[in-house]
Nucleic acid binder design. Structure first.
Lengths: 189, 189
DNA sequence: GAGATAACCTAGAGGCCCTAGGCAGGAGGG
DNA sequence: CCCTCCTGCCTAGGGCCTCTAGGTTATCTC
């Protein structure tokens, strides 16, 4: 019999493709086993349980996202960097909805996903260098920025912007303008 | 035998309590049946399926949220209204995490939940009256506002703000200040 | 070629969703 | 007061999912 040669890498990659097709909450061990042409029980030698699988997927997604953001940010500063960051973020969520959802689960800082999450946080903070904000305003601004971007893509995905003629793309551009404006003139206490 | 007298109202209320305790994705027909001291199959005469249950919960949550927001907005305008709106929103999410998650699912505009969602959208738009924005800037601003608020509470719930000494409350206040500032000086095209 | 190991298998228990069909308690009519 | 009907709840059962235990086979190493 020919062995399927499932490795943990192939398994997680297949899970990433699957979750983008069916949604993160529909990612099951059974469905993944079917896709790999293997019995479901066989996967439990690679993965502890379904939680473990999801955590690994979160780590993959956070790493991929951080890579794309890092690439988008290279050589840019100020508003240019902000727009590149936002677009990298939104494009990833559009291209890989399942992985994006995976990246939002609660992360144990000690886990391998934790370091990817930290890297992500550092990149977000890097954008704000162009806006010269001191602590604690910098932390507040990071949270504000992250909230707006994440909120936008998550509402857009949930279909919240579909019942209106104004396109999500147009509002997105104006939202980035607004973010740039508010970061530039971050209100003093 | 004493009948449990499950009505659709009692059922949805029990589901709301349950989901706040265990999370929206852990809301199952079985668990709800156990809580109502009834067999799971019995609930299918009240509810078509688990999707139907979730949709009814979404309708409940959207209605409750709209009620609270409407109350918070009464007699307020401008930044005062913005802060009240934001706090009503965030407080609801804190007090009722499961219901808040339920309110985020994709809503069919034709369903009863659709009218609650529309009412919600109108209330959001009402806030912007104090900021005198014409279309399409108004729609962009509504989306921006909603994105930031939803993004903030959802990241806060996911634990994204826990790995830093700056409190989520402090950043929240500053985020509302920033929102007020950006709505006041909404950047022209 | 003989372990040793890794990868896969079957069997099975338990949980959840949902359908089909049966039984009993309470309401209304005769 | 009794009969009937309806509603609310029941049991039985199939299908899918998670996960464990323990057995089998392919491949790697010596």
């Amino acid at each position: 019999m020919v062995r399927a040669k499932v490795t943990i890498e192939r398994l997680v990659n297949a899970a990433a493709e699957l979750t983008d097709e069916v949604g993160f909450d529909q990612l099951t061990v059974s469905a993944l086993a079917r896709r790999l042409d293997v019995r479901d029980a066989s996967l439990y030698s690679h993965v502890r349980n379904v939680q473990d699988l999801r955590m690994r997927l979160a780590a993959l997604a956070l790493t991929e996202l951080a890579d794309r953001v890092a690439e988008a940010l290279a050589g840019r500063a100020g508003k240019d960097a902000l727009v590149a960051f936002g677009n990298a973020y939104r494009d990833y969520a559009k291209a890989h909805p399942g992985r994006y959802a995976a990246a939002q689960i609660e992360i144990d800082p000690e886990s391998p996903a934790g370091s990817a999450a930290r890297r992500h946080a550092e990149l977000t903070r890097a954008i704000l260098r162009g806006y010269a904000l001191a602590e604690p305003a910098q932390t507040d601004a990071v949270r504000f920025l992250h909230s707006t971007l994440h909120g936008y893509v998550s509402l857009e995905r949930a279909g919240g912007f579909r019942h209106h003629p104004r396109t999500a793309d147009d509002s997105w551009r104006r939202s980035l303008d607004a973010l740039d404006a508010v970061l530039t003139t971050w209100p003093p206490d």
